[in-house]
């Protein structure tokens, strides 16, 4: 678990990075990020859980 402060710095960095990237490249960037983080996490099962969790409530 991250501290709320750490999470906030990630949140901000992502917002700024997404704004800095052309809208047509944002998907590509997000997909790359998933591969990169997954490689660091080295836990395929956990990543697959996260993929499923992130897919929830998208239409809420």
């Amino acid at each position: 678990m991250m501290t709320p402060a750490d999470l906030e710095t990630v949140y901000e960095a992502m917002a700024e990075q997404l704004d800095a990237i052309a809208p047509t490249k944002r998907e590509l960037f997000l997909a790359k990020l998933v591969l990169l983080l997954s490689n660091d996490l080295a836990d395929a099962e956990r990543v697959r859980q996260c993929i499923a969790e992130a897919a929830g409530n998208l239409d809420a």
Binding site: E27, L28, A31, K32, V34, L35, L36, N39
Partner: peptide, 17 residues
């Protein structure tokens, strides 16, 4: 297509991909 492109693009800097 997106995941394929992401893997190739990431591979430019990170050989694991």
């Amino acid at each position: 297509q997106l995941m394929r492109d992401a893997a190739l693009n990431l591979a430019l800097s990170h050989p694991f991909a």
